[in-house]
Design a protein around this nucleic acid. Sequence first.
DNA 1: CACGGAAGTAAAGCAGCCTTACTACCTGGA
DNA 2: TCCAGGTAGTAAGGCTGCTTTACTTCCGTG
Lengths: 157, 157
Amino acid sequence: MTSVNDLPGTRPGPWSDHIAGLLGSALRQVREEILANSEEHFPGLRVSHYRLLELIPADGGRITDLAEVAAMTKQGLGQHVDYLQRLGYVESDRLRADRRVRLVRRTAKGDEAAAFSRAAIERVEDSWSALLGGDRFETLREILRELGGDRPGQPTR
Amino acid sequence: MTSVNDLPGTRPGPWSDHIAGLLGSALRQVREEILANSEEHFPGLRVSHYRLLELIPADGGRITDLAEVAAMTKQGLGQHVDYLQRLGYVESDRLRADRRVRLVRRTAKGDEAAAFSRAAIERVEDSWSALLGGDRFETLREILRELGGDRPGQPTR
DNA sequence: CACGGAAGTAAAGCAGCCTTACTACCTGGA
DNA sequence: TCCAGGTAGTAAGGCTGCTTTACTTCCGTG
């Protein structure tokens, strides 16, 4: 068998050690945990949808504000909202006070989905906490919070 | 002006505090640093291309191995390689010893591009190091390394 | 009541992948 | 020697998750 390691440049080697790679690997784990078992419970939902569902305030939110918080354009966010609405995870109405505004709310099903992804994230947090020790995990969270100085929120064009 | 904060559910609020959000914000900063000034120096390159360029061993690598390390399919990786080759960042030849194998190497231009992204990442590392203090930054890197237990490398179908 | 700005929509495009389905090539064994 | 089966890579198409550009609708103000 012509295998790895008998040709030049073939050792797979460790995956990058700089923070970009390290952060990416960590994030990938979270995404995978969310997706595991997702399809059977909440068909059609992908990570970006869970993210959006979590962003919607309990009493509803408007496209523009959600887009700002999610750091994406209104159009992009609107597409997700339409999709989620078709699948029954959110509903929306025009505001009587200002009929331009569409207030987006989670349905009960949407609440469940948001709880589901929250739980998945917490499972990852717990497993990391067990792996690292509780205080080191808290250190990680603390440090990341300090780095997060920039809130997302460029787009919304 | 009908503004944020005079309608229900309208406070943008802080962006999520769980690790998913925190990791995402941090990663976003790195990506933005890489992209800043990228276009003027290395037109056509996007973050995924820099990532790939960095993965290519100095003496070249084969599609299959690169795909494994990059945790993506051979086809996906092949597309990037074709693109980079068209732009002159890499070159490739079939191996005489095994003509199925295409050995991909960075050109001089590709080396420069890889150095450019390395430098961008280091700028972020330095700025974080200054922000957090050197040892806390090292703690971050250390912790992330511990979490990275899962090497990427699922795909390559 | 018109004019300027805000909320949202429509249409199209593009990046960055993946899936399915090959072709070309090599190796080990009958 | 030849062929069966596996490996390296390619082709074509699809899909997600966005973006840009270009509106429409609606509101508040002068």
